[in-house]
Nucleic acid binder design. Structure first.
Lengths: 187, 187
DNA sequence: ATCGGCAGAGAACGATCGTTCTCTGATCTG
DNA sequence: CAGATCAGAGAACGATCGTTCTCTGCCGAT
């Protein structure tokens, strides 16, 4: 039951693309207007402010991440494979051509200190991911200490891939995760 | 043989503190003036532009990172311990109270897409770190594939600590690194 | 002592950007 | 058909910020 109108969704979509590709403050409202074909007056009737658009973008990014991870997990059957599918999902993302790091980390770095809601959104996204990993780790029967390690590998792969411009980090992270899971289960 | 004047160093110092704490575009030249006590005219005689100040800040951050990592490594004696000392260094950094993520990643997210020199500086810093890790891995007699895994753990710990606001990630990363190193040497 | 140049302080400029306002035209109502 | 309400487009406003300019006073040289 999404309360958002089609125009809102289109605006959020375009804003996400622009903010992510170039940074938030680098995108003007006028650009968002010309990109969407929605007039400024209409944009401001759909959202209170540019900040409100950004928060909607982050919400949507959170949903897309969650559903993407879940879809990758659905392709396999054991908790261990589901954990490893995270890095396959990351690999696909890194190679899609427009990858420029984790949108939450980018937003946090740019605005987290001046806009508390941005810092909060980033924290919530990361915590939600950590819970997801922790659940799978528990299902796999591995000690809880494995979960933050696997999450850190995923975070590190994202920033490494962003700055190096290569998707290799996803494979390295996956290999490392496999070793850590093995060691944890062997204990 | 540093070519920089004391005034330049003071300006870079203050700019680093402000940029890092609040984001680059959130800091005005006027604020930098009042923070340093250096007039705008003088600032613009010391640096061509705000961008030039930022690049000098990133340079200095690179030096500080390199020397900090080296100092931590000097406290121990084996290549393996030197590798692990990276995460101890990170832990100290995370707990210093003003930690807000990797300055290069923050700058990359905010300005990497619009200022190519910023993207370049970030890439160089990360590559330099990867080389450092790779050298130690080789000295430890472990396979080369271990190096990117350890680097990814360090990157992931930095972003995780930034957003969670806790230094725990450093310990998790260290534990994971220990397991990966052990496994690599056992092979 | 006077003149010339230099440096500092901050006022001013020009551009930009988020947000609001005005004007126009269309649609709906009675 | 007349009048009123609404939405769209983009001009305009007000604030901000990087950068430059002007003015003032100081210092050294003659």
């Amino acid at each position: 039951m999404d309360e958002r109108s089609d125009a809102q969704k289109a605006a959020i979509d375009a804003a996400d693309r622009l903010f992510y590709a170039r940074g938030i403050q680098a995108v003007t409202m006028d650009e968002l207007r010309s990109e969407t074909g929605i007039s400024l007056k209409k944009l401001y009737s759909l959202f209170d402010s540019k900040k409100a658009i950004l928060l909607a973008v982050l919400d949507r990014r959170h949903e897309l991440w969650t559903s993407g991870i879940a879809r990758a997990a659905d392709a396999v059957s054991t908790p261990t494979d589901r954990l490893l599918s995270i890095y396959d999902f990351l690999h696909d993302w890194f190679t899609d051509g427009n990858y420029r790091g984790c949108g939450f980390i980018n937003a946090f770095g740019e605005l987290g200190a001046t806009v508390p809601a941005v810092a909060l959104a980033a924290r919530e996204q990361k915590e939600s991911f950590q819970r997801y990993v922790a659940d799978l780790v528990e299902q796999a029967g591995a000690p809880a200490s494995l979960a933050p390690q696997l999450a850190i590998l995923a975070e590190g792969a994202q920033t490494t891939a962003a700055i190096s411009g290569s998707a290799d980090a996803a494979r390295s992270a996956r290999d490392a995760a496999e070793i850590l899971i093995d060691a944890a289960l062997r204990r």
